[in-house]
């Protein structure tokens, strides 16, 4: 037996021992709180297991290892089944079955609804999609793919035009001079508030120029030279501010997630904090 193998076996044994230890200690603490004995043993197992999985994922930060591999593979299997079950019960049994068959509705104990012949369209398209699995009928699956893509294209075209395009454009119509009261008041208040005319006006100018120089950066059929070159340069700077700001703003959310995990480890598992 070579050395590295021996070390990994020792680590494995250590983890098993720690796991069992944690299981026993957790069970007794849960029992002391007054949980039913069988339940406390079950919950203690689950908490320990969840803590093990959490640490297994964190170990990936150091390097890839068998414990991460275990967690990863378990996660893939469990999650795939999770979504299939949820989709089956909520969409297939919840929305589809009641519309097409009373017998099946009764079987699944969902209230049947008015029969709707149109619900056979997705049924047929769904079955066509499954034709991929047969070597000869593969071309039929393209029909349902075509249906899906057509739906996507039709819905998205209008949706983006209506909300992202039209609304964003109309939101850009902002006054380029906010509540002008003369030069004196304009330059007297540099605060970020409704009274700070200068800052508001400046902000509106930045938005106005930023949006249009940004759009010019996205021109594809013009070479970025001369006026276009300068404008798209400004556009890139605006985009860089956007990216930097968004990134910096996100750190907080990410740290929160780590806090959540550590809280689980310290509180629910180890009981270090209340």
């Amino acid at each position: 037996m070579d050395r590295s193998r021996r070390i990994s076996l020792i680590i494995f044994a250590g983890i098993i021992i720690l796991f069992i230890l944690s299981w026993i200690i957790k069970s007794t603490t849960l029992l002391n709180v007054g949980t039913e004995s069988l339940l406390s043993i079950r919950d203690a197992f689950f908490i320990t297991f969840a803590a093990f999985l959490t640490l297994a994922i964190f170990s990936f930060l150091y390097k890839d290892n068998p414990y991460y591999k275990f967690a990863e593979h378990l996660f893939v299997g469990v999650s795939a089944a999770y979504w299939m079950c949820v989709g089956f019960w909520s969409t297939f049994v919840g929305n589809f079955i009641p519309k097409v068959s009373t017998t099946l509705s009764n079987f699944f104990e969902v209230p049947p609804k008015e029969f709707d012949i149109f619900y056979f369209i997705p049924l047929i398209l769904g079955l066509m999609l499954l034709m991929r699995l047969s070597p000869k009928g593969g071309w039929l699956s393209r029909w349902s793919l075509a249906f899906i893509v057509g739906t996507t294209a039709g819905l998205n075209l209008i949706r983006y035009l209506r909300t992202d395009f039209i609304t964003q454009v109309s939101n850009t119509f902002i006054p380029l001079l906010v509540d002008w009261n003369g030069i004196g008041p304009f330059f007297s208040d540099f605060s970020l508030s409704a009274s700070g005319q200068f800052v508001m006006t400046l902000g509106n100018w930045v938005i106005f120029i930023g949006v249009f120089s940004g759009l010019i950066y996205f021109f594809f059929s013009k070479e970025h030279k001369g006026f276009f070159g300068h404008a798209s340069r400004v556009g890139i700077w605006v985009l860089m501010i956007t990216f930097g700001a968004s990134f910096g703003y996100t750190v907080m959310g990410r740290v929160s997630l780590l806090v959540g995990r550590l809280t689980f480890l310290f509180k629910d598992w180890l009981g270090l904090i209340s």
């Binding site: 983006y160 964003q168 938005i207 930023g210 759009l215 996205f218 985009l239 501010i241 956007t242």
Partner: peptide, 23 residues
Amino acid sequence: WIMVSPNLAGQRAIMIGIALGVV
């Protein structure tokens, strides 16, 4: 201010571009 002015301008330029791209 960075979030609501230059950041917003950049976001909006990208958004409008994307909308046109989607269309």
